[in-house]
Design a protein around this nucleic acid. Structure first.
Lengths: 262, 262
DNA sequence: TTCTGTGAATCTCTTCACAGCA
DNA sequence: TGCTGTGAAGAGATTCACAGAA
């Protein structure tokens, strides 16, 4: 999710569970922040809190990568940053093309998180001839006609689809034919791709619907009613919150509901 | 989750597994398309294909909602659309506020998928006074000062955070204090919220990193080599993790002592 | 016969709890 | 002593395979 997702058929990748792979970027982000503050080492407990998971899970995750910690001490921040980056393939440069330069495409092009992680926007592509040449995020928009040549000339293997739903499959087919093997799809459509091509999807509307489901349940419970039954005018009851609520949980680990995705 | 997914601490919601809830919007979309084409009934096989899952999973998912199909025939499209909509809480109106009207916020505001599913953008909020009053997607941007009153006046329970990472936690705290109980977070940060508040996150950079991981593996296999082997050029960065530490690990792969902060 | 609904088997992920190293 | 690393237990999700309704 959310990061929602479309996944690989089956197999565990190189012995690393898919669920673990999905958390590595989270750890990496937390570690990078520690690194910037020049923190030399960190315990599984501290790092887990920063990443929003529990420490047992984190240790188990790291155990798939190797034994990078020191008992009684913790993990060396810099070293771990390097190991995780390497595992994720971020020590190399990944050129990316973004197709569909509307609001969303422009937002993606401007998103700083790409560049800082080894992803380089090689080109922005749009089907609208009027867009061609216009600069977005410092890059001139290229026309769809050039899609194939851009991909092969730059050795691009990752494509981002930010077109309307109707154009997505067609764009996807062209990307795949041109050699793309990983696709991040923002269009609200199920893409069909040949074996060997990975697709992950990010769907705003789906995320909201999942939230609505839980929101509805909260409202139902509040009313003492069985869930889903009452249409109910949403909300009103502000509830307690505060640290007290957080403290009242059962498990040892204070884990925040936030996580994952998409 | 985008997806990924973000999950609830524990309990199965009303007996419906979280994994099933996350797929309901997918089924709903496929069903809506069939409905628009006036298709009266659909088999689990057909619907599963349209939604990008397998039929056993789909039937199991539907079995949690009730027995809405007809053996030997399939499912009534209209009826199923209604049942799933009701289950997801989409038969009611959900006002939503979007905080942070940059490229991404604007893209979200313009996203048609919201309105069509019972989500109504009640307000766009931004901290920049220069933005105030400017129309985006037909709505005037409101200043952050008004956040609390907007939320209570409109009975908003769902908030979308599209601010820079640095502002996200602060905005989140204000949203929660004002009564918001569900948050969709686009900022690349772990939000901490009190018990009872749901957070789902959508993180572009994380999705790309997961793709990179698999992409790297493909490249490795292609080369007949164990995955991840090639260090590739470690970009910039100094810091030298000692070879000693590197040597002492028992994990896979030999590695390069050099480094790379993000 | 056709296609749903579902127990049972399987697989994956998470959590526990503690042995063992620094 | 403190914290990692990991077997083992537990929980959850997926898939199988078939009984049974239309």
């Amino acid at each position: 999710m959310a990061t929602g997702r479309t996944h690989r058929p089956a197999t565990r990748s190189r012995g690393i569970p898919e669920a673990t792979v999905a958390r590595l970027p989270l750890y990496l982000r937390a570690l990078t922040a520690l690194s910037e503050r020049s923190v030399p080492t960190v315990s599984s407990e501290e790092l887990a809190t920063a990443a929003g998971v529990n420490s047992a899970k984190l240790r188990k995750d790291f155990s798939y990568l190797g034994s990078y910690g020191t008992r009684g001490v913790g993990y060396d921040v810099e070293y771990l940053v390097y190991q995780i980056s390497r595992e994720l393939g971020l020590t190399q440069d990944w050129p990316v093309v973004i197709v569909g330069i509307g609001n969303l495409g422009a937002a993606l092009a401007n998103y700083g998180g790409f560049a800082s992680r080894g992803f380089r926007v090689a080109a922005l592509i749009d089907a609208d001839p009027a867009m061609a040449g216009k600069p977005v995020a410092g890059l001139p928009v290229r026309h769809t006609d050039e899609l194939e040549s851009i991909i092969s000339d730059n050795g691009v293997s990752i494509g981002v689809i930010a077109t309307p739903a109707g154009a997505a499959q067609q764009v996807c087919d062209r990307l795949v034919a041109a050699g793309i093997t990983s696709i991040l799809n923002f269009a609200p459509t199920v893409l069909s791709v040949p074996e060997g091509v990975d697709v992950r999807k990010v769907d705003l509307s789906i995320e909201l619907q999942i939230l609505a489901f839980h929101e509805q349940r909260k409202a139902g419970e509040e009313a003492g009613q069985g869930p889903a039954a009452a249409p109910a005018q949403p909300r009103q009851g502000t509830q307690a919150r505060t640290a007290a609520a957080a403290a009242s949980r059962k498990g040892p680990e204070g884990d925040v509901p936030a996580v994952m995705p998409a």
